[in-house]
């Protein structure tokens, strides 16, 4: 308990610490937002709640890490992870997801949970359970008094790449024919089918795109943080927190919630200690769920 008060006191006494925490949180939150956007996409378009979301992220990270081990320049790992995870997403769609789309929601949830277990265990067998990262050997800028705010170039580049990816996806959804078809299917899949849209193709494309986005996010994460085969579930939980808080089809909301959750997690880790970081992500999920529950109760409705 004393620790906690001491840490809170630190925040009040040295406001600059807050700035450091927020900057850290926003940088990692941007990547959470990417994974969450993919989840919202799949959820909105085909009503599949993908519990393997975080494992796609981690898998993307390992793709990039493996390429870096083979001598590929790490930044190239991001587009390559995008492409390779696209392929994996497409395969998973064709083998599993297509069979659970029309079924009840628990089916897709459990099927993707099974997938999550499989992916985590396969990665564990291939890469071992040690944490891994790719060192970019780039400088770290220091700002503020005593250089308390660390700004590694890798993180800045990572956030910029996340932003580029997000903008690219948004433009694609707005401008391209496929993007329009995806949005039409999300609104009303039956009507879309009547209008001649091949919804099966749209679903496959959406799921593959989601896996690709997650993969690229993972490739960025491996440059600025660490990955481990079993870290996936926490990324899934974070994605669920963000989507539950922001709602579907609300990109600004997803980004805001992503950054907010990133910052909240950093604050939690600062106050309660780094050991609680995973727990904080989950507790945030519960908090968001119950907040929405209370709001629904006022509308005489339930959350479903």
């Amino acid at each position: 308990m004393d620790n906690i008060w001491f840490n809170i006191g630190l925040l009040l006494e040295y406001p600059i610490v807050n700035l450091k925490i927020i900057i850290d949180g926003v940088m990692i939150g941007a990547l959470f937002a990417l994974a969450a956007y993919g989840l919202a996409l799949v959820w909105g378009v085909m009503n599949v709640k993908n519990l393997a979301q975080g494992d796609f992220v981690i898998a993307g990270g390992y793709v990039s890490w493996t390429l870096a081990q083979m001598g590929v320049y790490p930044l190239l790992g991001v587009p390559l992870a995008f492409v390779i995870m696209w392929g994996l997403g497409w395969v998973i769609y064709k083998t599993v997801i297509t069979r659970v789309i029309e079924r009840d929601l628990f089916t897709s949830l459990l099927a993707t949970f099974g997938l999550a277990i499989m992916m985590a265990q396969i990665m564990n067998l291939i890469f071992g359970s040690d944490t891994q990262s790719v060192d970019m050997h780039w400088p770290t800028w220091r700002l503020g008094e005593l250089g308390i705010i660390e700004l590694p170039a890798a993180k800045v580049v990572g956030v910029v790449m996340a932003a580029i990816l997000a903008i690219g996806v948004v433009l694609f959804m707005k401008k391209s024919r496929m993007g329009q078809a995806i949005r039409a299917t999300a609104q009303d899949s039956r009507a879309a089918r009547v209008l001649g849209i091949d919804t099966e193709k749209v679903y496959a494309f959406t799921f593959a795109l989601n896996a690709a986005i997650c993969g690229a996010a993972g490739a960025i994460i491996v440059m600025i943080w660490v990955i481990q085969p079993f870290y996936g579930i926490t990324y899934s939980v974070r994605a669920f927190v963000i989507v539950t808080a922001a709602g579907l089809g609300n990109l600004p909301g997803v980004i805001a919630a992503g950054l907010g959750i990133g910052a909240a997690e950093q604050y939690g880790a600062h106050i309660f200690g780094i050991g609680y970081q995973q727990a904080i992500a989950v507790v945030l999920l519960l908090v968001v769920l119950f907040y929405r529950l209370m709001r629904q109760r006022r509308l005489r409705q339930v959350l479903q």
């Binding site: 628990f106 519960l286 769920l289 339930v302 959350l303």
Partner: peptide, 20 residues
């Protein structure tokens, strides 16, 4: 108060958080 998938995810969260 949570229905369907929200209940499943909420309870999963409970178990993970408790362990952590």
């Amino acid at each position: 108060g949570l229905r369907g998938p929200y209940f499943a995810i909420g309870t999963l969260g409970l178990a993970i958080a408790a362990g952590e």
